[in-house]
Design a protein around this nucleic acid. Sequence first.
DNA 1: CCTGCTACCTGATGGC
DNA 2: TGCCATCAGGTAGCAG
Length: 279
Amino acid sequence: MPELPEVEAVVRTLRPLVQKQRIRSVHVLHPIAVKPQSASHLARFATDRRIRCVTRKGKYVLLVLDRGLLTLHFRLDGQLLWFSSPNEFLERANQPKNGVHVDVAFEFGTGVLGFADRRHFGRVHAWESIENSTGLSSLGVDGLSKDFTVARFRELLSASVRPLKDFLMDQNRVAGLGNIYSCESLWHARLNPRRRAGSLKPHESRRLHKAIVSVLARALECCLHPAPDFRDSAWWFQGLEKILRVYGREGKPCRRCRAPIQRVVRGGRSTYYCRRCQK
DNA sequence: CCTGCTACCTGATGGC
DNA sequence: TGCCATCAGGTAGCAG
């Protein structure tokens, strides 16, 4: 459940389920999901704590407790599941027949929240404070926040010599963009992914800022309708493909100028762009 | 400090 | 059908 809009939609769905609830118990079924922390640390930390609020920073979900906080990160394939009772959880989770996969579960008075990721990339961590988490504390300005202004964005761009694509993927500059929405933003802004961040003219950085904001807002709208369904393990965001203009369209005509879309690979990640109209 | 590369895992898909 | 290669929406950790 990767990029910022998807995570935001998850947070909004999760909030009414667990906010103000007390965590009765914690079950770590696959300890790899809490690495490099330990199952006992997470259990000790979270058991009997109340969730003060559910929020988000970049692609991290934050469960702020009455003391400390938990972070959930879905990486590539993680998702949340909701079971209406401990009984339902026991019957459905990690059963050999038709079982849904669960790595970590939090039991509440109203139901059980499962964190699932069969690929075991996703993580659940416990922290005394945000500052204690290197990943969290170094995050840049959130792409959906009010602090993401053109002026701030220009400052960040001018301080970097990296290619725009790498710059946008760097969570420590602007937090929340991943591979898909980086490609999409660059396409909307008509900018070549290889351009150096610091080389943008003022009108170009304004264009890119506007593109990022609108791409994220549009995707979020899409992610909220319909809202995530944690009861259905097969559920996934619908209709995102119809808002994508360039991602995944290698060889197909650019929706602006009809030139074929290029795919280039770096570090195992694909970048899609139009050679003709992204300069 | 910055940058670039690899490891971490599993499942789906497509070519032969 | 089976086998193999490739691909997947991400980040931490490391070397240079």
